[in-house]
Amino acid sequence: MKIKVVSGDITVQKVDAVVNAANSSLMGGGGVDGAIHRAGGPAILKECKELRAKQYSTGLPPGQAVATTAGDLPAHWVIHTVGPVYSARENRSHILYSCYENSLKVAAELGARSVAFPTISAGVYGWPMDSACQIAVDAIRTFEQHHQHLLEEVLLVAFNPDARAAYERALGAPSS
């Protein structure tokens, strides 16, 4: 599996599945979540409402992942996952790790060969960038070790130069 860092807008990535850093309501919001809902159109919200009515009446718990259509996005699916809010007093790293692990499991179950991830929890949820990117890379590499050949490519979509540099450090590549 190739892991690549790309800069830009996650909503335009040509992959099988795009991961959404969702809020637990699954109803859209700000940041990546709002951008995916806006770009993907009403089909995503419709399926999110169905998920809330049938499976997640109190919302999607942090660390879990669930898929919907991608609507008007170039991807086939959106995989929604809820990252934890950063806390200096409580270690929630395992929840952030689970976001990546469970999203990759859902992608594999769907038959996706390529997945694009945002930097989960590193925006308004306050997770320190270097830590968020290292957890992402660790989870993806561990998944690859245990599930070889399920996925061909994972894109880590950096929304700014700081995220790109942090991903490159986590991957052990020189920062450009």
Rank of each mutant, 00 (worst) to 15 (best):
V124K: 08
R113D: 05
A22H: 02
D9R: 13
P174K: 14
A116W: 07
M129W: 01
Q55C: 08
T11G: 04
E152S: 10
Y100I: 06
M1L: 13
P84D: 08
A132Y: 00
T68F: 07
S57L: 15
K2T: 00
D162A: 14
A116M: 12
C133K: 06
A108F: 05
G41K: 09
G71M: 11
G29N: 06
L110K: 09
A108K: 11
H146G: 13
Q145A: 15
I36C: 00
N20E: 04
G28Q: 01
L45P: 03
P62Q: 10
T142L: 15
R141W: 11
A75W: 03
G111Q: 08
N23Q: 11
D16R: 09
W127Y: 14
R89H: 13
I10M: 02
T68C: 10
P161L: 02
A35L: 01
I10Y: 02
S175D: 14
S93R: 10
S7W: 14
Q64A: 12
N160Y: 10
I10A: 05
A122H: 01
G31I: 02
S24F: 07
Q55I: 00
G83R: 13
A158Y: 02
K105V: 06
D162I: 10
E109R: 14
A112L: 07
Y86D: 02
N102S: 05
P62W: 09
G30C: 08
L73G: 00
V15G: 00
G40N: 01
T58C: 04
S7C: 10
S176L: 12
C133Y: 08
Y86L: 04
G31M: 04
A166V: 00
G172Q: 05
P61S: 14
T81L: 07
Q145R: 15
L171H: 03
V78Y: 00
P118Q: 08
S98M: 12
T69Y: 13
L150Y: 12
D130W: 08
M1C: 11
A132F: 03
Q134C: 07
Y86C: 05
C133M: 01
D130T: 00
R52V: 13
W77S: 11
C133F: 04
